[in-house]
Amino acid sequence: MSTAQDVTDATFADVVLNSSDTIMVDFWAEWCGPCRAVSPILDAIAAEHSDKIKIVKLNVDDNPQMAMKYQITSIPAMKVFRGGEVVKTVIGAKPKPAIEADLAEFLA
């Protein structure tokens, strides 16, 4: 099981948009194999960089509004938010070094 906090349509504004932290939202679903594969990698990145970035998960089945608002058409989709805006999108399950490279500017 992932250690990341779940975020929902209802809590999205509070947890993500109004936060002063850098937050990455992992859009995922139970039926998505690659999402399950990438989940422990995101947990590891969150644990190693807890001072730089916070990672939360949004289940697209249960939270269609946010999935639609952010035009998700492929999962896993990881979107980095700062000050309520999307500043980076990473799509697809990739090995840890590749995701760390994608997120380099936020982890430094």
């Binding site: 039926w31 194999g33 690659p34 058409t73």
Partner: peptide, 17 residues
């Protein structure tokens, strides 16, 4: 456009269409 409508995985992405 990969991940923005172009996909190689129907079981992953079909849901969004």
């Amino acid at each position: 456009l990969s991940g923005h409508g172009v996909s190689w995985c129907a079981t992953c992405d079909g849901f969004f269409f």
